[in-house]
């Protein structure tokens, strides 16, 4: 935990505590649900960041792991596996699934990699839709992880816990040998391989860790909304949303996914209540503006601005780099 020394660890604990105490101040369940979604997607963004940010492998198929988490939990539970064990098992299944997918897709690069992650997720969605054993298009009811009384509070706190763990994994990655290898792969995979990094192996490890966390998120999400259909927990939109949250906040940065989730989801909920149908348009426009004006994401952009003014400590430099621009 070299990354978290001194004030940083206090800051992290402080922020987590603030997040954890939020339900005390929220007026009602609806706002709590919105916050649940925000924190959950921050966790998902952090999980994605391992693959998409540090390793620079741009997966648009993460909904596959999310969906395995949700569906696995519901189906295992239906087969009499204890509730929390089924959450854990489905996350392990997703990890195994990631190992299989990864061993195939990591041979591909650039857009081919991205496209094949989409293809895998789509094959999964279509299979679940077509197979009556998985509920088909009709969907499955999911078991509730928490009793009705403190339902949303508990889900919210679980999401905070997941985000906290994901953040720690990210923080460790950003300063560990493992993380440096991933960043080396991101900057130039051929060079990384040439200096003796087992690139396939490291990418795969990152993906498996990411899939595990994503599937836990999927399990929470599936249980919180109590009913799942392929078009909700296996929809490609979720993959895109996770990636965009991270890119908006700043891929390959620690705080990026958190900032992205807060901004995008809060904006989306507010726009939706204000503009009805037109809210989707604002989403598209936001993406285009970010790509044109803030290609490093908000945190990345702020960092650059900051670094121009004061000389940064050398160790922060790799964080500011994004897969978009290569090293700086």
């Amino acid at each position: 935990m070299t990354a978290l020394r001194g004030w940083r660890i206090f800051a992290l604990l402080g922020v987590t505590a603030v997040f954890a105490c939020l339900p005390l101040f929220l007026p009602n369940d609806y706002v709590l649900q919105v916050f649940f979604r925000i924190v959950l997607f921050a966790a998902l963004g952090l999980a994605w960041n391992l693959v998409g940010g540090y390793a620079g492998q741009l997966s648009l198929g993460h909904v596959a792991y999310f969906g395995v988490g949700a569906y696995g939990m519901a189906m295992l539970y239906a087969h009499h596996v204890p509730l929390w064990l089924s959450v854990l098992f489905s996350a392990l299944i997703a990890t195994g699934f990631a190992a299989i997918i990864g061993s195939i897709v990591f041979r591909l690069r650039g857009p081919y990699f991205t496209l094949s992650t989409i293809a895998f997720a789509e094959v999964l969605r279509l299979s679940v839709t077509n197979l009556p054993a998985a509920g088909g298009a009709i969907g499955l009811s999911t078991p509730a992880l928490f009793p009705p009384g403190a339902f949303w509070k508990m889900f919210y706190l679980s999401a905070v816990a997941l985000a906290f763990v994901s953040f720690l994994v990210n923080a460790w990655t950003s300063r560990s040998r493992f993380g440096y290898y991933l960043m080396a792969i991101r900057e130039d995979e051929d060079t990384a391989a040439a200096v003796g990094i087992d690139t396939a192996n490291y990418k795969l490890r990152a993906l498996m860790a990411s899939a595990f966390l994503t599937a836990l998120g999927g399990g929470l999400y599936g249980s919180a909304f109590q009913f799942i259909v392929p078009d909700s927990v296996l929809s490609g939109e979720i993959s895109v949303q996770i990636a965009i949250i991270t890119m908006l906040g700043g891929a390959g940065t620690l705080l990026g996914p958190v900032v992205g989730a807060v901004l995008l989801l809060a904006a989306s909920e507010l726009f939706k209540n204000k503009f009805q149908e037109s809210h989707l348009l604002t989403y598209g426009i936001l993406i285009v503006i970010v790509v044109l004006v803030l290609p490093e994401g908000i945190v990345g952009g702020l960092k650059q601005l900051f670094q121009r003014k004061t000389k940064p400590p050398a160790s922060v430099a790799p964080l500011a780099a994004t897969p978009a621009q290569g090293g700086d």
Binding site: I244, I287, V291
Partner: peptide
Amino acid sequence: DFMQILMTTG
């Protein structure tokens, strides 16, 4: 590529 993917998705 990913910036292009993001842009065209937008």
